[in-house]
Design a protein around this nucleic acid. Structure first.
Lengths: 254, 254
DNA sequence: TGTTGACCTTGACGCTGCGTTAAGGTGTAT
DNA sequence: ATACACCTTAACGCAGCGTCAAGGTCAACA
């Protein structure tokens, strides 16, 4: 029995375009081409197509499928295991996503006090904090602590009350820092107050506080342009000023 | 504070291409364009970008995000709920996929007796059966039974032994049918044997057997070109012949 | 002042797996 | 002869950018 594209497509439950595409990418070529240029498929091609569709249903990409059905000694089981790993990872991400979406819905519906403005002010800070987490890798290596890991978990469990506290604290840091910057003296009263507020803010995210880590973070504000850009937003030089204030506050410099 | 693309990109942790794309699709336009054609972003754009990135992290597509951040009274919670539904559906599919992949890995590793050839002969039949399940909808409506649902579950639980039995049976159906077809007599001994084998084969998939459903399936073999193509593969007219044999076998016609 | 080198611009292709016209040839039944 | 169903290649479109390419701009350094 021989088939034209449409016949085979109908038999297998795919579109004729799909078969042409499979021909194009060389995953399933017709047995022969007749005098009018029509694709003619035979039994072998039917069988091969079943294999292809089977693997496709498992979510494998066509490139992998090609290897599986083409290379005679290809390790299919291995490929499937790798595929499974990818799927499992996907599911993890999906689960995390769903949890986040649900949290956001709850926030949108339940909490009355947070205006959009406030909320996104919070998120903006969260982004910077995320950067800190990302770059916290360095801190972790320097101080051998797991406080960076902890900060994530801690933030996730923050109550609405805590959230407001930390937001307020962050604002105070910024305000005090802006005032202090005008004095130009990182050892001055205002600057030291800013450093203290910064420490308080930090303790919301870090499980344990250490002077070394605090000072390290201050240095990072200067070294990493992401932080620099954030702190220098209003007044260029603020990041450096904050670092100096922290160095003095922690007693690492006087 | 003002930002060029790169600055904002670095601050937010995205690429400059992304910002240009967001400008292009109108989801985030720069505050102004300077005399050299450079994009200049201000504080408002930073804020807006944070919103966009937040929703993006939740897996929303940019079009939805655009609505959320553009339309002031857009029902964001509703959009998120719909999004959640989609995510949950995705997870279901993913779970099913993973189960299938694992089953296949187990088959590939554990079963020694099935050559690739045999295995995929099996899958080929499975595909046809799948079609039957799909089109079984009609049968269900006609005979008000839930046997179609059951067949799926039943097949999933088939043991390796059953699997071999049913494969063998399917071959016998085909062979006997091919022989019977040559006699040209659907009431003849061979044709009736084929119908009986077909019934036995069916009972592997259907929880309960009924003459009406059996005859209905026979008719479908003729009406639906997918089945027709499958049964007419070797000898055109076989589907019709099988239907007639079943009609006689079930006593619906004599 | 000329020249790097790091930025910026628009334009356009590539990726995945096809769906979907479009423009035109073929096969067959009436 | 005509209609109609089928076949062909070629090409764009989809989402969200990554990645050249070709060329203008800007600050710093010799």
């Amino acid at each position: 029995m021989e088939y034209t594209v449409q016949k085979l497509a109908t038999l297998a439950g795919v579109s004729s375009r799909t078969l042409r595409y499979y021909d194009e990418i060389g995953i399933l070529k017709p047995a022969r081409i007749n005098s009018s240029g029509y694709r003619i498929y035979g039994q072998d091609e039917v069988d091969r197509l079943q294999q292809i569709l089977f693997y496709r249903e498992l979510g494998l990409d066509l490139d992998s499928i090609k290897k599986m059905v083409t290379a005679p000694y290809f390790d299919g089981a291995q490929a499937l295991k790798e595929h499974r790993e990818k799927l499992l990872e996907k599911r993890q991400q999906l689960d995390a996503l769903i949890a986040n979406v649900e949290k956001t819905i709850a926030t949108k519906e339940g909490r009355i006090t947070m205006s959009d403005q406030e909320k996104f002010e919070g998120f903006k800070k969260k982004l910077v904090e995320d950067n800190e987490h990302k770059y916290g890798e360095e801190i972790r290596q320097k101080y051998g602590d797991d406080q960076v890991d902890q900060s994530n978990a801690k933030m996730m469990n923050m109550s609405q009350e805590d959230y407001e506290k930390v937001t307020k604290l962050a604002n105070q840091v910024n305000e005090t820092l802006a005032e202090a910057f005008k004095t130009g003296d990182p050892a001055g009263e205002l600057a030291q107050k800013a450093a203290d507020l910064h420490k308080q803010w930090l303790t919301f995210y870090w499980k344990e506080y250490s002077k070394e880590a605090h000072a390290g973070l201050g240095q990072m504000y200067v070294d990493d342009e992401r932080f620099t850009a954030y702190y220098d937003k209003e007044q260029p030089g603020t990041a450096e000023f904050l670092r100096d204030a922290i160095l003095i506050y922690t007693g690492m410099k006087k």
